[in-house]
């Protein structure tokens, strides 16, 4: 299991379009991935669940992955959250 904290950088937070991008990336890994905010967990491969976290610009979230490609998954998703939306 690998987990790391990330600060949400995209101005729009983890909302519709950024969430869709995030999910697309997450689906590229076979690991089980969750995003945790304020004690609540959301499946990283579900944009609907992710949006219910209401993660805003500047919020801290934890990304946790478990599986064969857990390290790569956490690296990629933390990187994605740490950059501005194009």
């Amino acid at each position: 299991m690998v987990e790391r904290e990330a600060v949400v950088v995209p101005e729009a937070g983890l909302h519709a379009r950024p969430a869709a991008r995030f999910v697309k990336e997450a689906k590229g890994y076979t690991s089980q991935i969750v995003v945790i905010k304020g004690g609540r967990e959301a499946n990283a491969k579900s944009s609907l669940r992710l949006m219910t976290l209401g993660a805003k610009h500047g919020d801290r979230v934890m990304i946790r992955a478990e599986g064969e490609d857990e390290g790569a998954a956490v690296d990629a998703l933390v990187a994605l959250l740490s950059q501005e939306e194009e």
Partner: peptide, 16 residues
């Protein structure tokens, strides 16, 4: 286009 992509993502949401 981004809006429709986000809708497509919702449509294939695994938890849904």
């Amino acid at each position: 286009a981004g809006i429709f992509e986000a809708h497509a993502e919702m449509a294939e949401d695994p938890e849904f």
